[in-house]
Write a protein that binds this DNA or RNA. Structure first.
Lengths: 230, 230
DNA sequence: GGAATAGTGTCTCTAAGACATTATTCT
DNA sequence: AGAATAATGTCTTAGAGACACTATTCC
């Protein structure tokens, strides 16, 4: 069987103490005027990841430099698109806080929206994008546990407090600063000291780190158990 | 862009103390006569998971009852298929040891092959199926750590020794029987006692368990660290 | 000096790793 | 009785959680 092929993007960042996702207002039918995840058709002779990078740049002006981009999952329900058989390969991007996105060609408007609200209202996003968002957020939360990927939310250099803030916002919990400090500094390859430190008004300056070369955390940093789970 | 859409399957099982994968000998070009992962085109109006279930049954006679089937990843390199643009949604299936598969319509032959050998020889399988196999095996190994999915390799009722054997074969390690026993029986929801026990010649009978209702293990059962990793 | 933030130290408890012993069947 | 396999128990140690203190900057 032959199908139209698109990529969609769950682009997450941490802004103003909130986990936010990039959404665009659709400028063309179907779902014209509705909010949706950025995405679009894969071009001839174009790889899937390449298409995701291109769509992200074209439609929103966001570049993934310094961030992280990976394939999330593929959604191919026969009825997911009213136009016919459209299969989408969803991708997950984690990026540092960036200047407000600029809407591209296909999108009437692009903006950051708090994830929490979108997770509640399953009818806001077009197509099956609510499900894709749910899966993307869960993937991001899980990946923070066993990979150093939280650094993708930070800029090039960051402090341990900033990194901890990322964990707290993505997981929606609070973490003990001292135990967190011990954990991340004792995990080999997680962080790389730069030697420099912050300048700020009031308070001791903080060491600035870069992401290390580790790709997996051993042992993992588990998020606090859900209340009522055990 | 429009593309042909297929599903491919990494079907793993534990046979004769070996992790084995189901492969078929291709009965039609391209790669006619070469070994490949089972799979085929998605039908009109058919969901991706439905297509995977159907192909598994059609092409090999294997049914996934009692096992596990999930989406693995999607492979869409423009050059991955000489026929043109063919995007495949790979799936991962974990099944109990089953009677020898029967080749279906598209396949000249179907058989179980030890994974270890295929991982070494990256040129045996057609298309990019070696890469898909690598990803599938790694996914399976990782999932045993934080999910009770090893039970999918066992039949309906199984002993703790059988379950441990699955872990040992999939991970390629040996595990301490006593610590393993303590771990799986103390993790809530992992196992469900049936009350019955095995009958065998020589040796104390073993309790028979069924898979519990837990879908995630807390805390995870980590495989022994790779030598030279830390 | 005082406020603010960064970093270190200590105690406890859970759970994993290593290892010995007891229990229940069969021949 | 002896072989074979299942199940339980103990000691040690690594690491997470809870919590108090010291350090360095700015005003």
């Amino acid at each position: 069987m032959t199908a139209a092929l698109t990529v969609d993007l769950v682009v997450l960042t941490v802004r103003d103490d909130r986990l936010t996702v990039l959404v665009v207002k659709r400028g063309a039918p179907p779902f014209r005027g509705r909010w949706a995840l950025p995405g679009g058709f894969v071009a001839e002779g174009e790889g899937l990841l390449d298409a995701a990078v291109r769509e992200l740049r074209e439609e929103t002006g966001v570049h993934t430099i310094g961030g992280h981009l990976e394939q999330l999952a593929t959604y191919g329900d026969p009825k997911r698109d009213p136009r016919g058989r459209v299969v989408t390969v969803a991708h997950l991007a984690l990026v540092p806080d960036l200047p407000p996105p600029t809407a591209g060609t296909d999108a009437a408007e692009a903006r950051w929206v708090e994830v929490a609200g979108l997770l509640e209202q399953s009818r806001v996003l077009a197509f099956d994008h609510h499900r894709i968002l749910v899966d993307g957020v869960e993937r991001a939360r899980a990946k923070l546990e066993y990979s150093p990927l939280a650094t993708a939310f930070c800029g090039d250099g960051f402090t341990i407090a900033e990194l901890r803030h990322v964990y707290e916002v993505v997981w929606g919990t609070t973490l003990d600063p001292r135990n967190f400090h011990r954990k991340v500094t004792s995990t080999p390859g997680f962080l790389q000291p730069t030697g420099s430190s912050t300048t700020r008004d009031g308070g001791r300056p903080a060491q600035i780190y870069r992401r290390g070369h580790a790709r997996l955390l051993h042992p993992a940093m588990l998020r606090p158990a859900e209340p009522g789970c055990p």
